[in-house]
Design a protein around this nucleic acid. Structure first.
Lengths: 252, 252
DNA sequence: CTGTTTCTTGCATGAACAGGCAAAACATGC
DNA sequence: GCATGTTTTGCCTGTTCATGCAAGAAACAG
């Protein structure tokens, strides 16, 4: 096995899973962990990945401490949600994908063989989508907000205004039947509203801790939600409320 | 077995498998490994493949090379260039940074403690910049081109038109005194031209292999280059030509 | 704080490599 | 046929490179 081949395979797995483990790679390639670590060091020097204790992760599309903390949180749950959310897609659709770690997980979960047009203001989502050859990617530019990992502002709004989508994967900061979908930041909420306006349907995937919470800025009412992807352990009373508002509930 | 026949068979296998092993070819052709290595050396000189320890891999330097392969190429040189290029920065400046692996290296080399405003259409550059807390990042969105790693198109042009910068780090595909700076893609060249128009000075950092080469689409004349960052081993005759056009040469 | 895992560094070893040399194969001219 | 020059090839030389191992440092978990 050539060194270059290992490099390529590591990059492939990184694109697919978002992370690699040193020990796992060593046994898969039949080389010592030292060699794998050397490979990872080399790839990190080339900027292809970021080394972490135990292996490496896809080159940080975001760096804010807040974001990387959040992304460590509830990884399994988000991956499960992502797999379920991807089931809502069909070939040829056009999507808006919002920011947030759950939406990044969804982007990574999209299979390689489905053709889509995706517009996103999240660098993390965009990075994940670059691994997919059949996805036509439109980056919604603007002022980048490190805490959110997304672009916001007038430029972003203008870019959104020119597009329309079948589905909008809305990253929700708070979700409550009475208050609807809410966000922590004014400019962020404005972009989300614009995306919602130009989409035929809204999809929200949330972990349990987001259910029945609310943030200051309102994005959309609960009745605007077409698909709600939740964990199996989500409280059924809350779900019933959303269903009565017309949302279709999917369990991860 | 004729030498040319071996060349052909090597290229065939390369097209099929993406890689060849020196020892394997030697036994298949019934010649010594030295002969195979000579063959590989010749084919590499002709640009048909890229030699690696143990054999060779498909090269396709411009057409099919993936971004990740390009970024693994000449890592040391690019890092050195990047360090030198960063020396041109001063606090408070605003920049355009173009795509390309050299510019990604430059973005990674920017120290954490310098305050800048940076606009880029490259996802790789943007990712690197998110690690810098003092950098105000503006993402220039648009249609994403996987081969380039950048956004291009009308949206990108519109975003560039609204901005101005002190320096423009131009990723150059080809650099020749007579032809100036040239690019391989029409839309890409258009974005570069727009950035150049709105910048006070152009900086180009190139490895030796880009010097004295040209691509189809013209971006700017040699006289537009303010700073040229090159390796110590760059041919001095070529550099003198650029200097006579007003470029300031910096050695990495 | 303590033990464990992971990581870096230096080193040794064998494989792969470049360059020089000479023999063999081939072509060319007389 | 013979001499000459060129090309190709294999072998030999020292060098470089990739890898695994060991020891110490650092990061993590309890």
């Amino acid at each position: 096995m050539l060194t270059e081949e290992r490099y390529q395979l590591i990059c492939d797995q990184l694109a697919a899973d978002g992370r690699v483990l040193a020990g796992e790679l060593a046994s898969r390639f039949g080389v010592s962990e030292d060699t794998v670590r050397r490979d990872l060091r080399e790839l990190a020097k080339a900027g292809q990945l970021r080394r972490v204790y135990g292996g490496a992760v896809a080159s940080a599309p975001f760096a804010a401490a807040t974001l990387s903390q959040r992304s460590r949180h509830a990884v399994e749950e988000k991956t499960r949600l992502a797999k379920a959310a991807v089931g809502l897609l069909s070939a040829g659709q056009s999507l808006f994908i919002d920011g947030g770690t759950t939406n990044e997980a969804i982007a990574r979960a999209i299979p390689r063989d489905v053709q889509l047009t995706v517009a996103t203001n999240s660098l993390g989502v965009a990075s994940a989508l670059t691994a997919l050859p059949l996805v036509e990617l439109i980056v919604l530019g603007g002022r980048y907000v490190p805490d959110l990992g997304t672009c916001v502002g007038a430029d972003t709004l203008a870019a959104v205004a020119q597009l329309g989508a079948d589905l909008f994967f809305l990253g929700s900061c708070g979700l409550d039947v009475a208050r609807g979908v809410t966000a922590f930041d004014s400019a962020e909420a404005e972009v989300k509203r614009a995306m919602a306006r130009n989409s035929a349907g809204i999809v929200i995937a949330v972990t349990n801790d987001k259910l029945a919470t609310a943030a200051p800025y309102r994005v959309a009412g609960a009745e605007a939600i077409r698909h709600l992807v939740v964990e199996k352990t989500a409280p059924s009373a809350t779900l019933a409320d959303f269903q009565s508002q017309g949302a279709q509930v999917h369990f991860a």
